[in-house]
């Protein structure tokens, strides 16, 4: 990961995602080992969020492997007062999104692949050639 990334541009990207998807309240970018990279937060403690995000991903990956349900796509925690989502930015970074109970999941699924790609560009992370949903153009049978 490039060390000369402008945090302002990362925060601007997070802010833009928050403004485009109804219900996103805060978001945090961290490394896969739980170090804070950038945050667009109001109430949550960014450092704690970064650490928990890494733990959530670790648990999700391990669970997926244990039960043989394929590659982990994202981790979604649904609570009575909202959602916590963890999306991977390549193999080195994570995006945690905190939303209220009205989070527009449809819009999030529409917007997040492009947002993840832009964040990966900013962070100098190379994404795998087929980044999940957006380019599922595998020629079928």
């Amino acid at each position: 990961m490039s060390s000369q990334v402008s945090s302002a541009s990362l925060v601007a990207e997070l802010k833009s995602l928050r403004e485009r998807v109804m219900g996103i309240s805060e978001s945090v970018i961290s490394t896969t080992d739980g170090l804070l990279v950038a945050a667009d937060t109001a109430t949550v403690h960014p450092e704690s969020a970064a650490a928990l995000t890494a733990a959530m991903l670790g648990l999700g990956t391990r669970t997926a492997a244990e039960f043989g349900v394929g590659e982990l796509r994202d981790v979604v925690t649904r609570c009575s007062g909202g959602y916590v989502l963890v999306l991977a930015i390549g193999r080195q970074a994570l995006l945690m999104i905190l939303g209220d109970e009205g989070l527009d999941l449809t819009a999030l699924h529409r917007e997040s692949p492009a947002a993840v790609r832009r964040l990966a560009d900013l962070l100098g992370i190379e994404l795998p050639p087929s980044p999940g949903v957006s380019s599922r153009s595998v020629p079928g049978a």
Binding site: M1, S3, V5, S7, A8, L10, V11, A12, K15, T31, L35, L36, V37, A38, A39, D40, T41, A42, P46, L123
Partner: peptide
């Protein structure tokens, strides 16, 4: 104002 709301976010390696 993003400058006010954003905490110190210097990326760490």
């Amino acid at each position: 104002r993003p400058a006010d709301t954003a905490p110190s976010v210097a990326p760490r390696t």
